[in-house]
Computed example of a mutant assay.
Amino acid sequence: MVNKPTGVDTHPSHENQHDSLSNFVASYFESQGVKCRAHPIHRLDRDTSGAVIFAKHHLSQAILDRMLQHKHIKRTYLAIVNGQLQKNHDTISKPIGKDRHHPTRRRVSPNGQTAVTHYTVVKNINNLSLLELSLETGRTHQIRVHLSHLGYPILGDTLYGGTKDPNGQALHAKSVQFVHPISEEPFTILAPLPKEKRWMLFA
């Protein structure tokens, strides 16, 4: 398990990139004399911090990939959004596809892939809301797209209409729950907010 900092790509985005989370994990194992092929089971956007599962060999990777596919890995997030939601908890079930007018942006599309996000309002702060969210699916930018589609973009997420904020994008993967692929021991792993995002709990 790795607690990804803000501003780091999960995977290298080009051949000569050496500052991705995957590179850092590989370098760590090498420094410890551990021979393995560390592979992230899921990814977080560059400006999203928090918990990422890495598999150390092909067998655990295959098992964890299957667990993720069958929704046996639960991921929980914290986000601060612009505005106050009308419902204290709800499920957003809207398919997501590529936005043909932008190279990286996604959008809700009837021809997109199934995407399901659950949210609960933790508290309201002036014209902001702190949410706890969990995913049934893992589409690119899923939480960001779904919340923006509702009209409540994430604070600092200017790609999807959020208000620019000096603290950056207010989205953090706070925990994951899963069963160990070999020992079958249940785990709940908590990822503390990084220093630059601790303000989210006191906003």
Score class of each variant (00 low, 15 high):
2 V>M: 11
12 P>A: 14
13 S>L: 15
17 Q>H: 08
17 Q>P: 10
20 S>G: 15
23 N>S: 14
23 N>C: 11
25 V>R: 12
28 Y>N: 05
30 E>Q: 11
31 S>A: 09
31 S>G: 06
34 V>P: 02
35 K>H: 08
36 C>R: 11
39 H>D: 08
48 T>C: 01
51 A>G: 10
54 F>D: 03
56 K>P: 03
59 L>G: 00
59 L>V: 15
61 Q>T: 01
70 H>P: 08
71 K>L: 02
74 K>E: 14
78 L>G: 07
80 I>A: 08
80 I>L: 13
81 V>G: 06
81 V>P: 07
81 V>T: 05
81 V>Y: 04
84 Q>D: 03
86 Q>S: 09
88 N>P: 04
88 N>Y: 08
94 K>F: 01
95 P>S: 05
98 K>N: 09
100 R>D: 13
101 H>I: 02
101 H>F: 12
102 H>S: 14
103 P>F: 15
115 A>S: 08
115 A>Y: 02
115 A>Q: 04
119 Y>F: 12
119 Y>W: 04
120 T>Q: 09
124 N>S: 01
124 N>D: 02
129 S>E: 09
129 S>K: 06
129 S>D: 09
132 E>A: 13
133 L>K: 01
136 E>A: 09
139 R>L: 07
143 I>D: 06
144 R>P: 09
150 L>N: 04
151 G>N: 00
151 G>R: 00
153 P>L: 06
155 L>Q: 07
159 L>S: 06
159 L>C: 03
160 Y>Q: 07
161 G>W: 00
165 D>S: 09
165 D>F: 11
166 P>Q: 12
170 A>N: 02
174 K>D: 03
177 Q>M: 03
177 Q>C: 05
177 Q>F: 02
179 V>F: 08
183 S>N: 08
184 E>T: 13
185 E>F: 11
185 E>V: 14
188 T>I: 14
194 P>E: 14
197 K>V: 00
203 A>D: 00
